[in-house]
Design a protein around this nucleic acid. Structure first.
Length: 485
RNA sequence: GGCCCCAUCGUCUAGAGGCCUAGGACACCGGGUUUUCAUCCCGGCAACCGGGGUUCGAGUCCCCGUGGGGUCACCA
């Protein structure tokens, strides 16, 4: 494989979403695998939509995933600047070249006029295509138009010929000449459109491999033609099948919960997300578990599929469960701390406590599970409520057998060694002595100290809580039982 | 609507003409372990969109149909 120089060029409109993350990942993989380089460029030529905080978010999301770039914003490089908003002169210069060569021309239509033309085309049941003027307006005409208050844009005089691109994922795709029209390359505000800026930058920055979502496949002819007119080499292309939601609709940036950041805040591990995302549109045999490093090793464009993939959250959860089970204690601690820093919780930031929480919750699916199960252990002893169903089934049933057990045990608990092991051992012996199943004792205790039937193993739960608080909670539980609250 | 692309279990997919009685994973269902949940173990259900060809032989190649998606912006 030749050394590939790839790029990820997001538009800063918000957090990175999973589709963008996959594009970034594949580009990263391609560059690493080939011994080339990966660059990050910000495409912010749309002044209206520009959101400065979004750049920091995207950078943060990418780094969290472990996707590092060799060149681009924040890290620099030889072909910067890497924000299109800082490259206006470059675009202006190239547009001028096109104008001078007769490959582009000024146009003065207002949005309203364009809209009317489109309407008309729709009524004739035709696809609207901009009609090129007999002769191109001159620079003087353009100045006059400006003086008249008319918008001045520059359109590319599109050569009318079939364009065939060779795509690494889709093979040869031909766009017939009749489908093209003279698209705008410079907007009335003087900024270039995406097509021009993107093509110029890729060429100037030495990008030789363009990997992006399939939504661009039908527009690649513009880039091919533009490059040709500018005398620039063509890169290789590789379009990725789209990621759809479970309803089969295109995953939208507007779906907040599809942002990388929301998975991070929801308690997922980046290695699980990366692994999962890699499998959306790429596969190599039956294997499906990979670390980032293993992906670099295994990745190859031939494994990229053609049909769209649906984003299956259940499978992501399964991946996360496996990733959590395989991660070592330090890794999990860092992940849990990160998760907690993004969420309002009453959990302490004491590392020993956190490590213990991780141990007693072995088998957890996401960090949110830990918070869900153990949050109550850190709440005030009189602050949590009792799940009515749990109370009924575990405490009240059989004439209050659960309450009876609690009453019987409470005084004895004052004497037991307060470690998880000792507590478990003591409980087992207590059960054996009374010919009781563990559940008959452990469940009432669980409901008493957590208000629910769910918690980590009872010994560890009680140890963490401590003797005093355990007794306090049992008393409160007994009291609410009596008062029927 | 024009153009482009796609089509194997519910989902991600393996499959590059005989290896397919179509494989794996997730989900689901059933069972087991366990003091609850989660985990874990065992088992099961489940697909080649339809129709024509080509071929001794098609999930695999071709054509048509159907279905789905994308794109047709002074957004990227």
């Amino acid at each position: 494989m030749d050394k590939l120089k790839t790029r990820f060029a997001p538009s800063p409109t918000g957090h990175l979403h999973v589709g963008g993350a996959r594009t970034a990942l594949f580009n990263y993989l391609l560059a690493r695998k080939s011994g080339g380089s990966f660059l990050l460029r910000i495409e912010d030529t749309d002044r209206a939509r520009h959101d400065e905080t979004a750049v920091a978010k995207i950078v943060d999301d990418l780094r969290w995933l472990g996707i590092e770039w060799d060149e681009g914003i924040e890290v620099g490089g030889d072909s910067g600047p890497y924000r299109q908003s800082e490259r206006l002169e470059i675009y202006t210069e190239h547009i001028q070249r096109l104008l001078d060569a007769g490959s582009a021309y000024y146009a003065f239509d207002t949005p309203e006029e364009l809209g009317a033309m489109r309407q008309e085309a729709v009524q004739r049941k035709e696809t609207f295509r901009y009609v090129r003027p007999e002769s191109f307006p001159t620079a003087d005409d353009a100045e006059k138009a400006v003086a008249d208050g008319r918008p001045v844009v520059v359109r590319f005089a599109c050569p009318q010929k079939d364009v065939t691109i060779r795509d690494d994922a889709f093979g040869e795709v031909t766009m017939p000449a009749g489908q093209m029209d003279d698209f705008i390359i410079r907007k009335a505000d003087g900024w270039p459109t995406y097509h021009l800026a993107n093509v110029v930058d890729d060429a100037l920055m030495g990008v030789n491999y363009v990997c992006r979502g399939q939504e661009f496949l039908g527009q690649t002819w513009r880039h091919v033609l533009l490059r040709e007119a500018l005398g620039m080499d063509e890169p290789r292309y590789c379009h990725l099948p789209l990621i759809m939601d479970m309803q089969g609709r295109k995953l939208s940036k507007r779906d907040g919960d599809v942002e990388v950041h929301s998975f991070r805040a929801a308690g997922y591990l980046p290695e699980a997300l990366v692994n999962f995302i890699a499998l959306l549109g790429w596969k190599s045999g039956d294997r499906e578990k990979y670390t980032l490093a293993e992906l670099v090793e295994a990745f190859t464009p031939s494994g990229i599929g053609k049909s769209n993939a649906k984003f299956d959250r259940d499978k992501l959860i399964a991946f996360n469960t496996d990733a959590a089970a395989e991660a070592d204690a330090d890794r999990l601690l860092a992940g849990l701390k990160d998760y907690l820093s993004l969420n309002e919780t009453n959990l302490p930031d004491d590392e020993d406590v956190l490590r213990r929480l991780l141990r007693m919750n072995r088998g957890f699916r996401t960090f949110a599970d830990i918070l869900g199960k153990c949050g109550v252990l850190f709440a005030a002893d009189d602050s949590y409520g009792f799940d009515p169903k749990a109370v009924k089934k575990v405490l009240e049933k059989n004439d209050g057998a659960g309450y009876a057990v609690l009453s019987a045990i409470r005084p004895l608990l004052a004497e037991v060694d307060w470690t998880a092991e000792a507590l478990e051992k003591w409980l087992k012996e207590y059960c054996q002595a009374g010919s009781l199943g563990m559940g008959k004792v452990a469940q009432p205790l669980r409901v008493a100290v957590t208000g629910t039937r769910i918690s980590p193993p009872i010994g560890e739960t009680l140890e963490l809580l401590g003797r005093e608080r355990t007794l306090t909670r049992i008393e409160r539980c007994l009291r609410q039982g009596v008062s029927g609250v």
